[in-house]
Design a protein around this nucleic acid. Structure first.
Lengths: 325, 325
DNA sequence: GTGAAAGCGCTAACAT
DNA sequence: ATGTTAGCGCTTTCAC
């Protein structure tokens, strides 16, 4: 393995000088710089991040916490985060907090001295009792009640969605929320529905806000079951808003199984705009989230030194109309 | 930050002894062990993996190479790999080789001294010219022509699939391969189709093996386009085998758009058994891969010291019948 | 503008 | 059964 020492020796300078040209900080004569660059190329030197990390007491790993990697939405995010992190020479690692063994995962993160943590899990797993993260200067995103956050502004998309339903003449919507009811009030989509449905000439019937046990169960199953439940309850409805596209997928199937046709009998709107949402039957009208912006915001909040602790980045949403309304 | 030193001091022993109890290797008196354990708990000691990695000249990161994280199949794999790696105290990192900038990614892996590389990208990106990996003792899975491999034995599933089609009275199948034609001969599914269709009373018409530009384009789009192409070509067909479930999703939509009904007019079979394959319209009959076994095999091949370089682990497949045949 | 040297916290070889 | 010690390769002060 080629070390900085080797490079220094070949270039006839000290390791400090090599360090300066490699990091681009500090004064180096153009002569020295040239010699170092030649040596680096000739020896095919590659920095050992392990050593650098130890010295800096922090790794170049960004931890991403997920409950369920099988959710395509997370992967959209992960994809973009990897891309962004790479630009800045960081790598992203996945950590599963599946069985709610938060404690163990937290120890893991600490052991590995990750440089930041992005929580994609639905719930705000409270790190605050684990002050160590703060003490160690590890950036936490969407982890604690306070601290930097990126919030997806579903309001914009919801507005368009409701207007779209209204144009289609729908008046009796139901909302497949899927998440547990104690979580629902925190969700902007659910809140918007409850608070503003009336403005679009719709009845925001509380019984039609369907809560479930996502993310414990798969979103598409939850969507199916909730929709089935709604149908069996006999409550009349002419449209369905779904918290996520995968829930919409489930709902679509339930609707089909029970003989409803979409969009003739009921209109369906999803949320996320997964890359294959247009391939549902029928092609799903959905609230698109600017996933790339969301992912980049996560990485930037972790890595930008200027990012304040009270920073909150807003991610936009808008309706993508296809054939399900 | 609490170091091993601190623990040793508090326990009144040397760091070596602390190391012994922590690693479970070497002789330690039960008295010393007790004292160390007490100190670890009291001080809330957590090992610094950065230091350990440097010393061992190898990190606890398993690199996963992907072209496209948006493929649900990979996430299934990633999920299980994370789970397995965690058991052994390793973490998994994602690396995107999207733009074919293999070179750059390889440097990244080297810099980070990952302990192993699992290549989930479709093509065998040849690392062999990069002998450094071998020299450094970094395990490479599915990376080079030689070396350890996990192969998914599609033969089993394909056999059942063909039999299933035969039972349904189908005789004119097409195969939505999706991948570029030079890649096709390497694929067991395609090969099986070409070589054994006749045994099931089917015509293995070469023109009906549809190749495309996956993974450059999204699988579901490729599936759609290929199926559309097939329909427009006017070649008669009564069944469709698809390389992946996502391609099947696309094909299903094309079929629908062109007025065919599934399974009445044409039978469709996918491959992968994604968790939401049952939610396609109609529910997809598909070749299920034992994804967990596949993922575990990857991790095990990387971490097990006994794993030979010529090891090849076989992953089983079987048909899951739903409503598309 | 450049170099020397002190660690980062850990592991493992060696000594006792 | 336990302790001592020499690095791993890098960054970064501090002195020249």
């Amino acid at each position: 393995m080629v070390t900085k020492q080797d490079v220094a020796a070949r270039a006839g300078v000290s390791t400090a000088t090599v360090g300066r040209v490699l990091s681009g900080k500090g004064y180096v004569s153009s002569d020295a710089r040239a010699k170092v660059e030649e040596a680096v190329r000739a020896l095919n030197y590659r920095r050992n991040n392990l050593a650098a990390n130890l010295r800096k007491r922090k790794s170049n790993v960004i931890a991403v916490l997920v409950e369920d990697l099988l959710n395509p939405y997370y992967m959209h995010l992960a994809e973009a985060m990897v891309e962004r992190a790479k630009e800045k020479n960081f790598i992203v690692s996945l950590f599963a907090v599946k069985d709610r063994d938060v404690r163990q995962v937290l120890d893991d993160l600490l052991s590995n001295r990750v440089c930041g943590v992005v929580n994609l899990a639905m719930f705000t797993c409270d790190f605050s009792w684990y002050d160590i993260f703060l003490e160690e200067g590890i950036r936490l995103i969407n982890c604690t009640a306070t601290g930097p956050k990126v919030v997806v502004d579903y309001t914009e998309g919801m507005r368009e969605a409701m207007a779209c339903l209204q144009r289609a003449g729908r008046t009796r919507p139901a909302f497949v929320a899927g998440i547990e009811s104690w979580l629902a009030p925190n969700d902007l989509r659910v809140r918007f529905f409850r608070e503003h449905a009336a403005e679009y000439g719709m009845e925001a019937r509380e019984a039609c806000v369907l809560c479930g046990n996502y993310p414990l169960a798969k979103a598409h199953r939850v969507g199916y079951e909730l929709c089935e439940q709604l149908i069996r309850a006999g409550t009349p409805f002419d449209s369905l808003l779904c918290l996520t596209d995968m829930m919409a997928l489930g709902a679509l199937k339930a609707l089909f199984d029970y003989g409803y046709s979409v969009p003739q009998d009921v209109s369906v709107i999803g949320c996320d705009d997964l890359d294959f949402a247009g391939f549902f039957q029928p092609a799903l009208t959905t609230i698109a989230v600017d996933k790339k912006a969301e992912a980049y915001a996560y990485v930037d909040l972790i890595l930008d030194d200027e990012a304040s602790d009270h920073d909150v980045r807003k991610v936009h949403t808008h309706l993508v109309e296809r054939s399900s309304v």
